[in-house]
Amino acid sequence: MNAATQTLIKNSLQEPVWIRWSLIAIALGFILMFLCLPLWIVITEAFAKGWAAYITALGQPDAVAALRLTLLTALITVPLNTILGVCAAWAITRFEFTGKSLLTTLIDLPFSVSPVISGLIFVLVFGAQGWFGHWLSEHDIKIIFAVPGIVLATLFITFPFVARELIPLMQEMGSEEEEAALSLGANGWQMFVQITLPNIKWALLYGVLLCNARAMGEFGAVSVVSGHIRSMTNTLPLHVEVSYNEYDFVGAFASASILAGLAIVTLVLKSVLEWRQGKH
């Protein structure tokens, strides 16, 4: 094939120049307008009164407490949902049982329900007027407007991330390698650690990363169950809202910049993981 025919084929497969450029311009414009501009505003507002004010805002006891609670929540929910997600993916891809398709659909439920509704469900179940409310107050256990409620709501919201990454991969891999390991005398744990885990590790890490990003950033469900008690039940996203409503713009945007930074780190790690996955 000579160069002329190659160009001809290339041209015949491509849209006219003006269409190409306007599509690229629309896409770029959208990203600048709705992603880059807000990020820029967050950073400029956070530093509007200089470095010193930024550091002071982050050093406030309320902000520190919010950051600590956010980290605690992520530290509890992410490992739990990693284990639960692997179990769910394992059950769905390796066993045949009645209600399997129902379970597969239910895994996505937290994605399809509005986070506010999810929070409300927990209030209705564990709240003072809820099903278990009476029993809980008798035993002096606080779930709603306390840390356990925040953890529960986050657990619910972030449950699908790990399972959804693993299910398609494990379905595609099949169970022959695992059966081979068993036939060679491996026990269940050896099979999982030495055969299954190495095969799913990149997808698992990817799921954990997304799960973590959401656990730290969740607003709606946590907002309903937390009660916004300063230094007690405010997570970082809630702290941003409270500060902003009190016209503490530097405080609000300084906290927001932490969350934005977290999002950028997540994106970079995600790209690295996707690149690794593509290689395997």
């Binding site: 022959e176 059966e179 081979a180 068993l182 026990n187």
Partner: peptide, 17 residues
């Protein structure tokens, strides 16, 4: 299966990749 003393060769080999 792990205690039966059998060797199994799978159709698509199932080598650990």
């Amino acid at each position: 299966v792990s205690h039966r003393g059998i060797g199994f060769v799978f159709q698509h080999y199932a080598l650990f990749r």
